[in-house]
Design a protein around this nucleic acid. Structure first.
Length: 155
DNA sequence: GCCAACGTTGGC
DNA sequence: GCCAACGTTGGC
């Protein structure tokens, strides 16, 4: 079991949108960074858990938990000329961008970025590293345990 | 809207 | 392969 953090702009897809979605599943479309893609395509495994993080919004922070629930498959938005995520350099016979489906697990209170920063236990968390811009990144087991137990109040 | 930090592109 | 220019991310 591995743990992840996945950023989404809540104006695009929020934790509430995921909870309300058909089957409570959604395709994690729109990733256009190679490192984030590699984590999603190559390193994730079905059953891995991830923090659902709200970014580029009034209250950035962790909003809940989701579960990786599909094998990787091509992100269709890269082939649609009218889509904002269209990539003219990607070809259907050799897709550049891959995604997975995630399943809603739980919503939590919003745990603000500033609160994460204030926790000494999370000093080495990748999310908090200077200049970090990755939209998908691993979370260590100890960071996961601290956040779920101490900040979310889960068992 | 600002801007620091980073990733990508493309000429050489 | 270098690196300057440019584009993007994302908190504030």
């Amino acid at each position: 079991m591995q743990y992840w953090l996945m950023k989404s702009e809540p104006e695009e897809v929020s934790i509430d949108d995921l909870e309300a979605a058909l089957s409570q599943r959604a395709a994690w479309f729109g990733v256009r960074n190679y490192q984030a893609r590699n984590f999603m395509r190559d390193a994730m495994k079905v059953g891995d858990l991830a923090f659902f993080y709200h970014s580029s919004c009034a209250e950035p922070g962790i909003a809940g938990i989701c579960e990786v629930c599909s094998e990787p498959y091509p992100d269709e938005t890269q082939f649609s000329t009218v889509n904002p995520y269209f990539d003219p350099k990607s070809k259907p016979d050799n897709p550049r961008w891959w995604l997975r489906d995630v399943r809603f697990v739980s919503k939590s209170r919003l745990i603000p970025l500033a609160q994460l920063r204030a926790c000494p236990e999370l000093a080495n968390m990748r999310l908090l590293a200077r200049g970090n811009r990755l939209s998908i990144m691993p979370v260590s087991e100890s960071e996961w345990a601290f956040i779920t137990k101490e900040l979310m109040g889960l068992q």
